[in-house]
Structure formats: C-alpha cells, structure tokens
C-alpha cells in the first residue's frame, strides 16, 4: 500500500437524489401494501395502484438523475481509483445479498421437497401425520396432487426451459466478449457483442412469458397450485425480474457505449452490468437443475 494511493480521496458533494429515492420507496411501499390488501379484500385495485405508479415513476426519475450525476462526475475525472474499488466491492456485496435472497426460496424448495412433502406422506416417524390428516395423500415430486387435492401437471426440462438455458449461457459468453472488447479497446466488438447480449436477454424474457402462458393454459400449473407451483413461479418469477433489470442495465450501457463512454481502465458501470448478468445466469443454471431437471 503506497502512500500516494491514498492522497486522492474523493468525497462526493451533497445530493438531493437520496431523499427523493427515500420518498419514492415510501410511496412504492404504501402503494403496493394498500394495493395488495385492496385486491385481497375486494378483488379490485383501489387508490393504492395510483400511489404505486407515482412511486415507480419517482424512483425512475431519481435513478436517472442520480446516475446522470454519477456519469458526469466520473467523466470529469472526479472519481479516484480508490472510489472505483469501493464501487466494485459494493457491487460484489450487493450481488452476494441477491444470492442470499434467492437462497431463501431455494431453501423453501429443498425443505418442501425433502422434508414437508415426504413427512405429509408418512415418511420417517410421521405415519400418523398421513393417516390422521390426509390418508389418501401420496408423497411425490413434482407435487402434482397436493394433500387437499389440487392437481396440476409438472413443467418438464425439455423444450422452452432447455432453449432458455442455452440462450442465457450463450448471452453470458457474449457479454464476456463484449467486456474483452472493451478492455482491448475494440469498440466494434464491444457494441456488437453487447447488442447481441441484449437481444438474447429479450428473447429469454419473451420465451419465459410463453412458458408461463403454456403453464397456465395447458398444464394448469398456477401460482396457487400447491408448493410445487409456489416455488416454481416465485423462483422463476424473481429470476425473470432480475433478468429484466439486468437487460435494462445492459441497454443503458449500450447507449453509453454508443456515446463513446468507458475506457479500458475506467468502466465500472459496464463491469457491474456484466457481473450482474453473470449472476442471473448462474441463478438460472441452479434453477434449471433444481426446478426443472431434478
């Protein structure tokens, strides 16, 4: 650690964006909370919907403003190398927190599959659980018939899920080549590979919607069809939301690349988008194995 490395501390100036973000998040929480309660009670969305919409618009406005300031400050050379390291470490820990968020749902999947469903079927010393509660229930996975008799069909790994897996893996490779292009200052490779990644991300999302339609229409697999449907839709749904965010992130990066932003040494935002993309890819691989194949 040399002395000079620390002579260029950068402490950012005050900013109005965080407090706006806090207010926006407040509106989102109040709006979403009220909306959900209203939907649950009357089946109709009341005023909660409008609060939620205003909150989402405010949060987008905040993000655009905050990131715009960041980009300007970065490009005027205000940011030190140390701040770049802080950003990278911060992003890594953020991704770790996302991993733990998915871990909660994977944990629910494993628990349902390995413990609660077998126990309801009478495994171990739980014979009486089965006899007293639901004597006709057979433990199985995927849980196509729940103890209270809801039936569904399972989503197999072949077809759309397999295609989607290939698409995401390829997109992880293309975003890596885009990164390599950036580091070697091959701007053409950078923009083409990035565009290809975005297209693949959009195809993935499109196919995901197709798969949901297929599940609801043809298989009768719904969010409320027992713990198999619950874990299926929450895991793939939250993953899909992350892919959506990652795609938006990459689209912003693409326009910044077109404007000539990023140098081989200074491209934190691009790197963060690329890390995020690899992260959603890894989550999908786990999903594919544990939700579809096994």
């Amino acid at each position: 650690m040399s002395q000079t490395e620390h002579t260029e501390y950068y402490v950012p100036a005050q900013s109005p964006w965080p407090i706006l973000g806090a207010i926006a998040l407040f509106l989102i929480a109040v709006g979403a909370g009220t909306l959900v309660a209203q939907l649950g009670k009357t089946g109709e969305a009341g005023w909660g919907k409008w609060v939620l919409i205003v909150g989402i618009i405010a949060v987008l406005f905040m993000m655009i403003g905050w990131f715009r300031d960041q980009v300007i400050e970065s490009r005027t050379g205000l940011h030190s190398q140390q701040l770049g390291v802080s950003y990278r470490q911060g992003m890594s820990w953020f991704i770790f927190s996302e991993v733990m968020f998915f871990a909660a749902f994977f944990g629910a999947l494993f628990y349902a599959r390995m413990i609660s469903v077998p126990w309801l079927g009478g495994a171990g010393n739980n014979e009486m659980t089965n006899v007293v509660l639901w004597p006709n229930f057979q433990a199985m996975w995927p849980l196509t018939t729940t103890p209270d008799g809801t039936t569904t069909q399972a989503m197999g790994p072949m077809g759309l899920p397999l295609i989607n897996t290939i698409i995401l893996v390829v997109s992880s490779v293309t975003v890596h080549f885009a990164h390599v292009g950036l580091e070697q200052n091959k701007r053409k490779q950078l923009s083409n590979m990035l565009l290809l990644t975005i297209v693949l991300g959009c195809i993935f999302l499109f196919l995901q919607v197709e798969e949901y339609i297929h599940a609801y229409r043809d298989l009768g697999l719904k969010l409320d069809s027992g713990v198999y449907g619950n874990t299926f839709f929450l895991l793939t749904g939250f993953h899909g939301m992350h892919v959506t965010l990652g795609t938006l992130f990459l689209i912003v990066m693409y326009f910044r690349v077109l404007k000539g932003h990023f140098t081989p040494d200074n491209h934190f935002a691009f790197q963060a988008a690329s890390w995020y993309w690899h992260f959603v890819d890894v989550v999908w691989l786990c999903l594919f194995v544990f939700v579809y194949v096994l």
């Binding site: 309660a37 909660a104 849980l143 103890p147 209270d148 969010l223 409320d224 027992g226 619950n230």
Partner: peptide, 26 residues
C-alpha cells in the same frame, strides 16, 4: 435478504394463494 424472502412468502401465502406455510398445499 433471507428475511426479505420470508416476508415475501408470508405476503404471497396471505394474499396470492400460495401454500409455503400451509400443509394442505404441501
């Protein structure tokens, strides 16, 4: 984040008909 997952499952169990914490749905 695990707490966030737990409250999310409570939300869907209460309002969206999931059965993470309900033996009737497995």
């Amino acid at each position: 984040p695990v707490l966030a997952g737990a409250v999310t499952m409570v939300l869907t169990d209460k309002f969206f008909g999931t059965s993470f914490f309900d033996a009737a749905g497995g």
